[in-house]
Simulated scan of single mutants.
Amino acid sequence: MGRQEGAQFEKPIELDIIKYVSKKADDFKLLAREKDIHLFFETQIESFTTIIQETLLTQIIQNFVQNAIKFTPEGKNILIQTIPNNQSITLKVIDEGIGCDEDVDLFAPFKRVGGQKGAGLGLFLAKSAADTIGGTISLKNREDGVQGTVATLELQLNPTCKI
């Protein structure tokens, strides 16, 4: 929690979200391979540049992908996807895991589900990071007939960073 508090005072930088997420996806492919999970990155645009606190963005992406890997069985897939909107971009991490209980506040501190290890702070910190960078996050079950979770981060082109 202390690291995140420090990151909230990090100077925002100009960052190409597409290149950044693509690099992060490549990094996470190694972790996914250890569990025989196939991780893919898909985008519809070449670039989306905004001003953002990089460490906070990393915390959100890391939490989404690590949770997806944690709760997805071997041999299944995870898709990291970016979708452009008018003045925003949506980042989705779509897994083929156990899904989520949408009736539970998964963003509450110390909330643990699924019998997995952890302190139950990851999503709480991800939500705090999203709030700080002017984004919104959500978790929903997939609606395409496949079991799993869709973790979503919505970022504005010109976010309001709380400093």
Results as ranks from 00 to 15, higher is better:
I80N: 01
F71L: 06
L31R: 10
C161P: 10
T58Q: 11
P159T: 06
S138C: 11
T43D: 03
K19E: 15
F110L: 01
I163V: 15
I98A: 13
S138H: 03
I163Q: 14
D103K: 14
I98E: 14
C100G: 04
G115S: 06
C161G: 12
P159A: 09
A32C: 04
F9S: 10
Q156I: 00
I17A: 12
S88E: 14
P159I: 00
F110H: 12
L57D: 00
I80D: 02
P159S: 08
K24F: 09
G134H: 12
T152K: 10
A32K: 04
N85Q: 08
N67E: 04
T136K: 09
I133L: 00
L121I: 12
T152W: 05
A25T: 15
L57P: 06
Q59C: 08
Y20N: 09
V65H: 04
G6R: 13
I163S: 15
A119R: 14
K19H: 13
F71N: 04
H38N: 12
F71K: 04
V93A: 13
K162Q: 13
V146C: 12
D26H: 11
I37T: 02
G145P: 00
I61K: 02
K19G: 14
G115T: 07
I51F: 12
Q87W: 05
I133T: 00
F48E: 03
I52E: 04
G120W: 02
E10Q: 10
V65G: 00
A130S: 13
D131Y: 08
L39H: 07
T49R: 07
S47F: 07
T82C: 09
T132G: 00
G114N: 08
I60G: 02
V65Y: 10
Q116W: 08
A151N: 01
I45D: 03
L106T: 02
L39Q: 09
K24D: 13
K140N: 13
I17Y: 05
T43A: 03
K35H: 08
I37W: 01
L139N: 03
L155D: 06
Q81A: 08
G118F: 10
D16H: 10
D26S: 15
V150M: 03
R142H: 08
K23M: 13
T49L: 02
A129Q: 06
R142V: 10
H38E: 15
Q116Y: 08
V21I: 15
N86M: 01
D26M: 10
E102M: 00
L79C: 07
I94M: 14
S128Q: 14
E143Y: 09
E102W: 09
L15M: 12
G135I: 05
E5L: 15
T49G: 09
T90E: 03
K70D: 02
K24T: 09
S88F: 09
M1S: 15
F64Y: 05
T72L: 03
G122F: 06
E143R: 13
G115A: 08
T152S: 14
G120C: 03
I83V: 11
A126K: 01
D144T: 09
V65W: 05
